[in-house]
Amino acid sequence: MIDGTVALPHGITARPARRGDKDFLAKLYRANRDDIRLAEGETDYLENIIEMQLEAQINGYGDQFPNALYLVLEKNGSRIGRVTFDIGSVELRLIDLDFIKKAKNKGYGSGIIIWMMQTAAKIKKPALVPARRDNQLLLRFLHKYGYTEESTMSDDVFARMIWFPTTEEMAGLTDIRPRPAVMGAV
């Protein structure tokens, strides 16, 4: 689906992950697991849990999402994050989106999600985004753009949010912008 580099909003580019990105991706994962570090326990024990989860993620994505697309996000030639999508037979699914700490809270994530929605409209599939229930900023953004919760796929931690493109969006007649949710199949 992506060969080379793709220009995204906010001057970000995306390219397929390469072997040389392995250390960066592992470091990014470890750096952003403050949720585990806040748990009660000894530091070594919590760091071991983070390492086990990193291994489970690396091994699990391949089995669970065989059509996944692993992209490294760059800005001005520097790696600032990663995004992983699964191009399923039914939907385009965001699996993972993460940024280095200096790139957080700058609107980059919303730009990536809108790009994903544009792609979903082009391939005439709904977009599925998992949102942590405690991430109210993301949930508000998704609701604003017409996502609804798919309760059969949700759990206590994650709301699986789904967006259906309109006929006009799929035909490229209108831009992706805030709107009420549209229900149904594409």
Rank of each mutant, 00 (worst) to 15 (best):
S151K: 07
S110E: 11
E51F: 09
A185S: 09
R177T: 11
Q136Y: 14
K106R: 14
R133A: 01
A26W: 12
S89W: 01
T152A: 13
L73Q: 01
L173V: 05
L137P: 06
I114T: 11
E150Y: 15
Y145P: 06
K104M: 08
I36V: 15
I2D: 10
V129Q: 01
P66I: 09
D175S: 15
P130Y: 08
Y45H: 03
R79C: 13
V182E: 07
G62P: 07
A185H: 08
R30F: 08
T119A: 06
D155I: 09
T148V: 13
H10I: 05
E55A: 12
L139C: 08
L92M: 00
A17D: 06
R160D: 04
R30A: 12
T152G: 02
I113M: 07
H143I: 09
M1G: 06
G20E: 15
R15H: 06
A181T: 11
S89F: 07
I2L: 15
G81Y: 03
R19K: 11
G81I: 04
P66G: 10
N48R: 14
V129H: 00
G77W: 02
M1I: 02
L54I: 03
I80T: 06
P180C: 08
R79S: 15
K101C: 00
L92A: 00
K104C: 05
A159V: 06
G172L: 12
K27Y: 11
A159N: 10
R160Y: 14
Y108V: 05
R37S: 04
T119L: 10
V157L: 13
M183D: 14
Q136H: 11
V6H: 02
L28T: 09
L97P: 01
Y147F: 15
I95M: 04
L92T: 02
A31I: 06
G60A: 12
D44Y: 10
R18W: 01
T148I: 10
G88P: 09
V6N: 02
N76H: 14
L142A: 05
E168M: 00
S151P: 12
I49H: 04
A31F: 03
V186F: 05
M161A: 08
I58A: 11
G109T: 04
G77K: 01
